[in-house]
Amino acid sequence: MKINFMESFLIFIRGLFMGSADIIPGVSGGTIALITGIYERLVHSIGKINFTFIKPLLKGNFSEFKMKLLEEIDFGLFIPLFLGIGIAMISFARLIEYAMNYYPAYTFAFFLGLILASAYVLYAHLEKFSIKLIIVSIVGFILAFIFVGLNPISATHTLPILFFSGMIAICAMILPGISGAFVLLLLGQYKYMLNALNTMNFTEIIVFILGAVIGILGFSKILDYFLQKHEQITITFLIGVMLGTLRLPYDNIVNNLRVGSFGIPFEIICILFVLLGFILIVILEKKFKFVKD
């Protein structure tokens, strides 16, 4: 397997951004993957894993096992990407927890800018925009708007619950516009898992990851089909979803209004953070370039 170190490094950087996004309620790592041009490769690579390499391994045919393993699993993508995601999630867990506790409005204003810019980037790369696609986008908007308005449920934190939470959350994490962290918030598991990361509770982290792996292996095949057969409709639907999820950061900004700092009105500071998030996504898109596989 030939290694392209520059390509691996850029994939690792994408992983850092994806991991940072996945830990934030309201921001999707799938969105970051999409605007940095790696999304379709990621979904397709996960979707083609069928574990056919296990049979020759059980038979002791190690040469066939190695051949099928390399054919079926895109190590050049998975190793640097998931390394970046893991490092980012562990590194930023405390920072995000601190920012949300002490500067919630500014933090969510930044998130709002990220989501708004992501929707704009996807819209700019649509090949066409017909009445049919507008309807699909509106449906996505309405569903997401209703979804993010739901109240978090009370839940226990047993290992089976964490396992199924991982299965559900990962399906959202891989979808652009739908935040897996927000799904965890609705399930009553977000702060608990954030604390598990901060305290390095390996038992709960491993159980959650196992659920996530099973969930992503199944869901990615469905998503890969829609991207391969109905790409424009899928992307348009996801744009609507992104715009609908803006309800979450907006509500959190409004609910945390207070006096501004250094004589600057609070609203102006929030707008500056929105612009900062928007500009960051535009820079990312220009840096990595949106490339269709």
Rank of each mutant, 00 (worst) to 15 (best):
L16E: 00
K68Y: 07
T158H: 15
F5D: 03
I46W: 05
L81I: 11
K2F: 02
V274K: 01
I153M: 15
I279H: 00
M200G: 03
F17D: 01
F129P: 10
V291S: 12
I138E: 04
L187K: 02
G180K: 07
L83G: 14
E285C: 02
G215E: 07
F51P: 08
L185N: 08
G19H: 00
S220H: 02
I11N: 01
V213H: 08
N4G: 00
V291E: 15
A169K: 03
I269L: 13
I135T: 13
Y190L: 04
S45M: 12
V274A: 03
T199D: 06
L187E: 04
L194W: 04
L143Y: 05
I35T: 13
A109S: 15
D293L: 10
R41T: 14
L197F: 15
E285T: 15
Y190S: 07
L197V: 15
I90D: 00
Y103T: 12
L227C: 06
I90Y: 10
F17L: 14
E267R: 04
S165W: 01
I281K: 06
P56R: 09
L122F: 13
G19M: 00
Y39E: 12
L58Q: 03
G263H: 11
Q232P: 02
L243P: 10
L112E: 13
M167H: 04
L162P: 08
I85T: 10
L69F: 11
I96G: 06
N256D: 05
S28R: 03
A196F: 01
H157F: 06
I35A: 01
L57G: 02
I3E: 00
D224M: 07
F164W: 11
K132E: 12
G215S: 10
F145A: 05
L159I: 10
F53C: 11
G263A: 13
L238A: 11
I205C: 10
L57Q: 00
G211P: 03
G47D: 10
Y225P: 09
K2N: 04
L187M: 15
I268R: 02
I268T: 14
S179Q: 02
A88M: 10
A124T: 12
L69T: 02
F62Q: 04
F92W: 04
P104K: 01
V43Y: 06
F278E: 05
E285Y: 03
I253Y: 08
I134H: 05
L42D: 01
I178D: 01
T203H: 03
F219M: 07
F82Y: 15
F53S: 06
I214T: 14
S118P: 13
G218I: 11
P176A: 13
I11S: 00
G263M: 11
P265N: 12
Q189I: 05
I96E: 03
G188A: 11
M173S: 00
I174V: 13
E40I: 08
I281D: 03
I11T: 14
F17Y: 04
A169M: 07
G180I: 07
L159P: 03
D74G: 01
G19C: 09
L95N: 13
F82A: 02
V183S: 08
K221E: 10
I138R: 00
H44A: 15
F164P: 06
R258A: 09
A124N: 13
N195P: 00
G277D: 09
V27P: 07
L238N: 09
L143V: 14
